[in-house]
Every structure is written in C-alpha cells, then in structure tokens.
C-alpha cells in the first residue's frame, strides 16, 4: 500500500463528515417514514416528493429559532455541552474503513481516514466522552428534570459501556487485533465447513456477543426502549429540556450520528464491513454492501422504537448487571478456551 499525502487524508475526512451529516438528516426522514408505516400513517408528505425535503426544512427552522438560555444556567458550560456530544460523535467516523486503497486520477487514496492500531478502543473511548455533553448540559441547565435525565444517562452509560466493550473482547481474542480495519480484512476470508462455504463474519463465531453488542449499543445511544435520559412523558425531554434552536439541534445531530456510527461499527465488526459479492473487484460495491448493512441496523433501531415500551429504571440496571454482564463474561471465557484449544495449548 502506497502512502498518501496528508492533504488527501484531510479531503477524505472532510467528505466522510459531510456524507455523515447528510446521512444523519435523511436518517430523521427515514425514521419518520418507517415509524409512520408501522403505525399506519403517511409521515411527512408536504415538503417535496415523499417529504424528501423535510430534513432541510427542519434544519432551516431550527437555525431561525431563538436561542434561549435560562437565567440560572451555568452559561459557559451550557454553551459548550452540546458541542461535546456532536464532536465526540462525528470524530468517530475517522477509524471506520469504507474500503481499501483506490486510485483516483493516478493518486493513491485510502477509503479510510486513519488505520489506528487501537481503532476499536478509539470508538469506545469517544462513545464515553459523548456522555459528558449530556451530563454537563443537564447540570448547566439548572433544571431538576434535566438533572434527573443527566444522572440517569450517566448511570446507564457507565453500565452499558462495560458491556459494549466486553462484548467485543471475543472478537479481539479471535482476530488478535484492536484495529477496526484489520478485523474487517480478516472477515473477507471465507470459511469452509464441509461442503458449505460461508463468509468468515464474526457474527457466525460470536453470535451471543453480537446480540449483546446490539442491546448495549441501543442503550449507549440513548434510544428507545432505553431512552430513559430523555423520557418525554416523565422528564419533559430530560437533559435537553432547556435547550432550544441550534443548540438543541447539536444534541439531536449527536444522537443520530451516534446511531449511524454504531451501525457502521456493528456492520464492520460482526457483518464483515464491505465484504459482499463483488466487493473485492469494485470498491463501489464494497461501499454499497456496507451501506446495506448499516441501513439494516438503522431500520432495526426504528423498529425497536415502534415496538417496545420504555424500560423501567430498575429493569434497565437489572438487565445490564444481572443478565448481560454474566453472559458476556461467559462468552469471553468460552472464546478464550476454544482459542487455546485451537492452538493446542489446552490439552
């Protein structure tokens, strides 16, 4: 692989971030349409064909609204808290690989921003940074409901972060790597089981970890049925009650970008990322397969929201510590034992 000049990396990062923002805007449209279909409604129809211009209209509306700050607020913290959520969400796209090296006009271009040696840890670390924005925004609002939402969020993220990280340990054991790109490349190989040829996706060797990862990821992104921090019916939207206009929209952007990033992460770690028919020959097909997997996960998110009622707080903590944590620890031990046996070090 040829090295590329640093400015190409910057251009690629710029394109990825903008694609992510547009993707986020249309994620809101997608969510509203799917929810509407599930509830026998039409969803947005007025702005553009099939309401396709709705996200743009929403953005313009949010820009034009008044930016309110409560009198008792901690102003400085109130200003930067939404930005923490947003930046921590966007920056995570840097370690997601969208393909290998391609050649554009004779220049080598990597379809990933950085191949960090500890890419998976980078994603987890910035996931936990994002919650600072929530708890600080909640504190700075000087509002009881906000603070309750923030405290819930902190407890939830501390619990589910552990499970999210531990569910990936099985993959780290099998792949002997923490680099997201390395793990994805390993999955492009095929697995021969007698007459059947299967893709070497980690969902096949780590099915339990996949299920636990999905549950923990929904909790980590504060989405229904784990959306206790912003439970509208009891906490009046929780941590962002006092936020309005574009400051509110940063929270909103952060939440949806987090959903997309977690979907990309899950697709790359468990479903082979760009792996699919023809992806080894045409890089466009690789991106296409990755997007198909991501849309599947995003649909799953919306589906959960339309189907399940919100968990009670004690149930949320009970599931994390009494069910998921033991399961994920068993998964790690079993994976480690199988790996040792495969190396011939066990018996």
């Amino acid at each position: 692989m040829e090295p590329q000049p640093i400015w190409v990396t910057f251009v690629v990062a710029f394109i990825f971030m903008n694609v992510l923002l547009v993707g986020m805007a249309y994620m809101t449209w997608f969510e509203r349409k799917v929810l509407a279909a599930m509830q026998d409604r039409l969803g947005p129809t007025r702005t553009g064909p099939h309401g396709l211009l709705q996200p743009i209209a929403d953005g313009i509306k949010l820009l034009g609204k008044e930016d309110l700050i409560p009198a008792a607020a901690d102003r400085l913290v109130f200003y930067f808290a939404p930005l923490v959520v947003f930046v921590a969400a966007v920056v995570r796209v840097a370690v997601i690989p969208f393909g290998n090296q391609i050649t554009v006009f004779g220049h080598p271009v990597n379809l990933f921003v950085a191949d960090l040696n500890v890419g998976a840890l980078f994603l987890l670390a910035f996931g936990s940074i994002g919650v600072y924005g929530i708890i600080l925004g909640a504190y700075a609002s000087a509002n009881r409901y906000s603070l309750l939402g923030g405290l819930r969020s902190a407890a939830q993220v501390i619990s589910y972060e552990i499970i999210l990280g531990l569910s990936l340990v099985g993959i780290f054991l099998l792949s002997q790597s923490l680099s997201v790109r390395q793990i994805m490349l390993l999955q492009t190989a095929s697995l021969q089981l007698g007459p059947v040829t299967l893709p070497n996706w980690f969902i096949l060797s780590q099915p339990l970890a996949f299920v636990i990862f999905l549950i923990a990821a929904v909790a980590e992104t504060n989405r229904a049925p784990f959306d206790l921090p912003e439970a509208e019916t009891e906490l009046v939207s929780g941590f962002h009650t006092e936020y309005s206009a574009f400051r509110f929209s940063f929270y909103f952007l952060g939440e949806y970008i987090n959903m997309i990033i977690v979907s990309l992460f899950a697709a790359t770690m468990f479903l082979g990322g760009i792996d699919g028919p023809g992806s080894d020959r045409f890089w466009v097909l690789g991106i296409f397969w990755l997007l198909v997997k991501v849309v599947f996960f995003l649909f799953f998110y919306v589906w959960l929201r339309a189907t399940l009622p919100r968990f009670r707080y004690d149930q949320l903590m009970g599931i994390a510590w009494k069910v998921l944590l033991p399961l994920v620890l068993i998964n790690i031990i079993v994976t480690a034992l199988i790996r040792l046996a495969g190396n011939g070090q066990l018996f």
Partner: peptide, 13 residues
C-alpha cells in the same frame, strides 16, 4: 481516555 473519562464522570456526579 476510557479509564479516566469514566472515573471523572463519577467524580462529576
């Protein structure tokens, strides 16, 4: 980042 960010979160709480 992971360890100290988590620890500081508890401190903030």
């Amino acid at each position: 980042v992971i360890v100290y960010a988590g620890a500081m979160l508890v401190l903030v709480l």
